[in-house]
Design a protein around this nucleic acid. Structure first.
Lengths: 179, 179
DNA sequence: CCTCAAGTGGACACGATGTCCGCTTGAGGT
DNA sequence: ACCTCAAGCGGACATCGTGTCCACTTGAGG
């Protein structure tokens, strides 16, 4: 059965309000009640759909991640198939830095506990990198290692220290080149 | 002026109780009140010394970290000075995996927010790795990148997936060898 | 033994979480 | 157009953890 009209309307209001609040104050400082109030719905309505902040952040990230995933699977090289692994990895890193620069606060919002690793998106990134690293002794573990520098906490810390996205991308390209 | 006798006694009780609770239940599930009760002191006494869980975890980690730091500065090669950078990095990785295997729950306890990067210990590790990486274009940023795979959340996630410490160490050695 | 500052501990106020249940509303059937 | 009823709604509530505050206790030097 399809979603009821009022339910759909409320979901849109919730996501819009959450996006705004996350951007304005950072995900950690926004309470469920803030979101409910800003969206003009009750707490019960909010909890019905999203059990916690992480679920909302995941929903918001969904479309951006999907777009990048699409590019990785079917886009032009070097992001998409066709280029040598090291170049594809470098391109992936650059795209992820771009994503982090625009949405790190959201990614951070998904990180209640260690939930980042259980996200579908993380699984996708790992599968991708594991394939690129298939020439190494233990690609499965190396994939996690190669993804670690993209942790949003680290990214925000580096940015706060005054490191530019360009320098981060360059260092990651360096790393990819070693592969 | 020296610490009063009762104060010293209570600090020891607090650290012992916290260590036990962290090990038994994981740092995240232990409340300040749990610790106070287990230590047989009041909440006020606990807060007087340690403003939050992170401070307690840091205090508990202190001695282990100091020992490794000492080895890095003055120990025998390849951990200490004298060996080629790539080998020293590999040895450092191995030592850190060992530390994580024994105390990851504590390290995780220090991670209230993104506080890990502002710890004195993290600064030490970064300085160490930056020096080892001084042959590269941007050692300052690469140091953060090379330390990222040691994030305790990642380590615990890998272990939970059934990955052995040996495989993790091996992959990190691989990474160090590329340097 | 006396003094007083350091130390103690529990009561308190606050804020966030997640649940529960009576009310409202949309949509399909007649 | 109306009826019905389940899906959806929303706010009150109970619970829990945090951090502060202050009256009381205790240890150590004079």
């Amino acid at each position: 059965m399809p979603e009821r009209a009022d339910a759909a309307r409320n979901r849109a209001k919730i996501l819009a309000a959450a996006d705004e609040l996350f951007t304005a104050h950072g995900a950690a400082d926004v309470t469920m009640e803030d979101i409910a109030r800003a969206a003009g719905v009750g707490r019960g309505t909010l909890y019905r759909r999203y059990p916690d902040r992480a679920a909302i952040a995941v929903a918001l990230l969904d479309e951006h991640e999907r777009r990048l995933q699409e590019s990785l699977l079917r886009g032009d090289p070097p992001l998409g198939p066709g280029a040598p692994p090291a170049e594809r990895l470098a391109a992936f890193y650059a795209a992820m830095v771009d994503l982090l620069e625009r949405h790190a606060h959201l990614v951070l919002g998904t990180e209640v506990g260690h939930s980042r690793f259980t996200t579908g998106a993380y699984g996708f990134w790992r599968t991708h990198v594991r394939i690129l690293a298939s020439g190494t002794p233990d690609p499965d573990v190396l994939a996690d290692v190669l993804l670690a520098p993209l942790a949003p906490e680290l990214y925000l810390h580096q940015r706060a220290r005054g490191v530019t996205p360009e320098r981060i991308t360059a260092s990651l390209r360096e790393l990819a080149g070693l592969l």
